Simulated scan of single mutants.
Amino acid sequence: MNPDSSALRPTAASISSESSDLELLTALAAGQVHALGILYDRYAKLVYSLAFKILENSEEAEDITQDVFLTLWRRNTYNPSRGSLSSFLTTMTRSRAIDKLRSKGARLRVIQRLQGIVRTEPSSTTPLEQASVGERAQLIRDALAQLSETERQVLEIAYYEGLSQSEIAKRLNIPLGTVKTRSRQGLLKLRQTLQDYI
């Protein structure tokens, strides 16, 4: 007679803060969400500290921390033979934080190029130079007019008020993911419209 395989699984009662990482991950894979809470208590400070060190932004570090633990829960790709769980979480955190920095850098470069288009030079006094500045400003207005109202609103708040995406989400009372999507789509449209000028 085959033994019942469920008897080999850790039960919710047997999982505690004293359980090993591997026991907790096994319990998590078996659907015991309580195990995630223990792992979070054990490693959240490590993950948050590293994310904050890279991003220098507490809200973005919190976003990364949540993302790392949600990923561990939904798609556990940790392999114990390749190192400790702390090393795995550190690697994932570093990767996510660097991706966020790259994404922010790309957005910043587009905004800086747009600023360069509309920036007026102090010595722009000739009619030809004034016409050129006016023409560039009109190009920007036309490009912004092609965005949806929601995309334009997010970009204008980021550009004119300097708010982070998390701050914009709070201001507009919408999910952070929605802000990220609108910002990304708006910047892509601006880049396409103005590709000959930036």
Rank of each mutant, 00 (worst) to 15 (best):
K53Y: 07
Y48G: 06
I64N: 02
T65K: 15
L46G: 04
S58I: 06
V47C: 04
T77D: 11
T65Y: 08
V68K: 12
K45I: 09
S84D: 09
T77N: 10
D67Y: 00
R82N: 15
Y78K: 09
Y48L: 06
R74N: 11
F88L: 07
S86G: 04
Q66I: 09
N57W: 01
R74G: 03
V68S: 15
E60N: 12
F69N: 07
T65H: 14
R75H: 08
F52M: 02
F69A: 07
S49K: 08
S86Q: 15
T77G: 07
I54R: 09
E59M: 13
F88G: 02
Q66H: 13
L89G: 03
L50E: 11
Y48P: 03
N57K: 13
N76G: 09
V47M: 01
S84C: 06
S84L: 13
S58G: 03
L50G: 07
R74C: 03
S87V: 03
I64D: 00
D63F: 09
A61F: 03
F52N: 11
F69C: 07
L85M: 06
F88H: 10
R82M: 15
F88S: 01
F88V: 00
K53W: 03
I64K: 03
N57C: 13
I54S: 02
D67K: 00
A61K: 03
L70W: 10
I64C: 04
S86R: 12
S87L: 09
F88T: 02
F52S: 05
R75W: 04
E59Y: 05
D67H: 01
S49Y: 05
R75Q: 09
E62P: 00
E59G: 04
E62S: 09
F52T: 01
W73M: 15
Y78W: 11
R75V: 04
S86E: 13
F88M: 02
K45R: 14
P80T: 08
S86K: 14
S81V: 09
E62D: 07
S49Q: 07
L70M: 13
L46M: 07
G83L: 10
L55T: 12
S87A: 13
N57T: 11
S86N: 09
K45N: 05
F52G: 00
I54D: 07
F69I: 11
D63T: 05
S87D: 15
K53P: 00
N79A: 14
L55G: 10
Q66M: 14
T77C: 03
Q66P: 00
D67W: 00
E60A: 15
T77R: 12
L70G: 11
L46E: 10
I54Q: 06
R82C: 12
L55I: 10
R82V: 10
S49T: 08
T71M: 08
F69D: 11
L50K: 15
A51Y: 00
S58K: 14
E56F: 13
L89Y: 01
T65I: 12
F88W: 08
S86P: 01
D67A: 06
D63L: 01
D67E: 03
Q66C: 08
W73D: 08
L46N: 08
L50F: 00
V47N: 02
L72I: 06
Y48E: 06
F88Q: 01
L89A: 01
Y78Q: 08
D67T: 00
E62M: 02
S58H: 04
A51N: 01
L70D: 10
N79E: 14
Y78I: 05
P80Q: 07
F52K: 08
A51V: 01
E59S: 08
L72P: 07
